[in-house]
Design a protein around this nucleic acid. Structure first.
Lengths: 345, 345
DNA sequence: TTGTAGGCGTTATCAG
DNA sequence: CTGATAACGCCTACAA
């Protein structure tokens, strides 16, 4: 059972006019007399007429909706980004279709195929951790689908990108640990394929280099699924804790990895920051309520969403092909709390 | 710049056939010879043909998308529900259009108007805290728009509803506090209009009655915006703390209110549970990492989403008008942790 | 077995 | 100033 909404035809019939006259009157065309316009508009308002967006889409070859693909909606960072995207899209009359890959390549491929079979005008995407083959995405881009990357970007595809200044964020976080006399700073990173992993590790190494510390590869661990699988985090934490020369600090390079590691360390009754100082990426307000209150690198998620959406709308609505692409790198905020503050050691 | 995708026409032209033959072949009609079918299908695959969903929508008067309206996406409970909805919708070939009211009536009205101007086949909604006039929603429902309510339901509208067993959840939580010798148990509730508020308060009162305790109205507070505005929470917490006869426990009846109150109490250096025992609704995993670890009433959010989506799809795809509506009340989980466990007082 | 001719709701073009 | 017609991409009676 469906509810049948009024169409232009209904109005035309009721008023003894043609559909074209009605259409023109509703769009306030100059060629219609004020009297007819008024009659038509009044009647339209009365029966609560709304133009059918599907018919418009078919005619105008656009859907007024944009697709968003992230790895997980329930992740605070992503839901904040989506919030930002939504606010801009909404303001400009666009729908947002939100989808999640759950870090799976197959799901990502399926979703892309689905979304781009004409149901979106543009795409905002943070690629899944597993993905390292971007031919599909590249093809879509070459065919003319407007794409904006955020967070996890694909270097080979030339389009707008919105990221956190990951290098600087981790650089400052690591610096802070070094200033707190940490000597063996470990890191747990996301999948090595990801742009964010490379950038964040570069920040870590930059800080160590400045302090003339050696890069010890045994202190660098990866979670291929971005911490979505608890076991992969447990595994690397255990590896770090059973090293001959144990780390005295951890820098956690992804939201999920941060909270999982924190939880694991607590369960093992490891004192933070005394035994291990901890700082990691996370966007949830809740981390301030943790015990110890967690030091975090927080990304300007809402703004990232806003910027990505604005850039995408620019692409979609631009008349000429855009060739000048922007890379927006927004500054993260380093929030130092108890988990990384070593008063004396 | 748009990318032009292949159409049935293109295939027909390329193969010297008519569009209807192509259409039929692609849908595996019995009236087309195997040879032609194969030729057409091969070519379609080769040029990566995908039927245009917009054209299909126009023809079939359905969009294969469902709308979801919640108060806030970034709220863990809602993002988990959305997750559940998405999983079912996705499996059945439906799009999900996610929107948020931010607890504002105007936004809710605008979104409804937008969503229902033919761009969705059905709606899953948890109404905003401010809303107490449901004529709009009622009209939509009467016009035949399939609607499923979850969480915050509208009693006057007769359709499927998926809720947590709120009464029982709060009843058990309050009982737990009573068993822990709490004598003056206060509650902070969401907007009094909401179904969830009424149900949850009923649970509170039921427990007190069983223990032959008086209901002291000064211990019952409301946040009209569901805790979305920090000041409204601060105000009621202050009111409770400055009562002549202070409360020794708090039951917090909404996610946001729970975390805000917890944060306020911590800032005021109030010991939990010694000074005030605390338990509240919350769906974030993070609460176990709080200090003190927070006791919570956790809702089966993912399942709620799944059920709501399944019920909606049933409504949408049902041939005859549905008259037998379900009210699914799923059991919440009471997780007792430090914030409400009083060992000795 | 294949082709022709509408029609879904709208707007642009061309006529009057 | 207003109306008829075609077109967007697809499907389906009805013809051939």
């Amino acid at each position: 059972m469906k509810f049948e909404a009024a169409t232009i035809k209904d109005i035309a019939k009721a008023l003894g006019l043609s559909t074209s006259t009605v259409s023109r009157a509703l769009r306030d065309s100059y060629e219609i007399s004020e009297a007819t316009k008024k009659k038509i508009k009044d009647y339209a308002a009365q029966i609560n007429y709304r133009p059918n967006p599907v018919a418009l889409s078919l005619k105008e070859k656009r859907t007024l909706s944009i697709g968003v693909l992230v790895s997980e909606i329930a992740n605070t960072f992503f839901s904040q980004v989506i919030n930002g995207i939504e606010s801009i899209a909404y303001k400009n009359g666009y729908n947002v279709i939100i989808t999640q890959s759950k870090e799976s390549v197959e799901r990502e491929e399926m979703i892309l195929d689905y979304l781009t079979s004409r149901s979106i005008d543009g795409l905002i995407i943070s690629v899944s951790a597993e993905t390292n083959d971007f031919t599909n995405l590249k093809q879509l881009h070459e065919k003319g689908l407007p794409i904006v990357f955020f967070d996890r970007v694909v270097e080979e595809i030339n389009t707008h990108k919105v990221v956190t200044d990951n290098l600087d964020g981790v650089y400052r976080a690591t610096q802070h640990l070094l200033q707190n006399q940490c000597k063996r700073i470990s890191v747990i990173a996301n999948n090595a394929n990801l742009s964010i992993t490379k950038e964040r590790l570069a920040g870590y190494k930059k800080a160590l280099n400045e302090y003339k510390m050696n890069i010890d590869e045994s202190l660098i661990k990866y979670c291929d699924h971005g911490g979505l699988i608890v076991e992969e985090v447990e595994k690397v934490v255990d590896e770090l804790l059973t090293l001959k020369k144990k780390p005295d600090a951890m820098v956690l390079l992804a939201d999920k990895i941060t909270t999982e590691t924190f939880s694991i360390l607590k369960k093992k009754n490891i004192n933070m920051p005394q035994d291990i100082a901890v700082i990691g990426f996370n966007n949830s307000k809740y981390t301030s309520l943790f015990s110890p209150a967690l030091s975090v690198i927080s990304q300007p998620a809402f703004e990232m969403g806003e910027q990505a959406a604005q850039l995408l709308l620019n692409l979609i609505e631009s008349k000429r092909a855009v060739t000048d692409f922007k890379l927006e790198a927004l500054a993260p905020e380093i929030i130092i709390r108890e988990s990384s503050q070593i008063s004396s050691r």
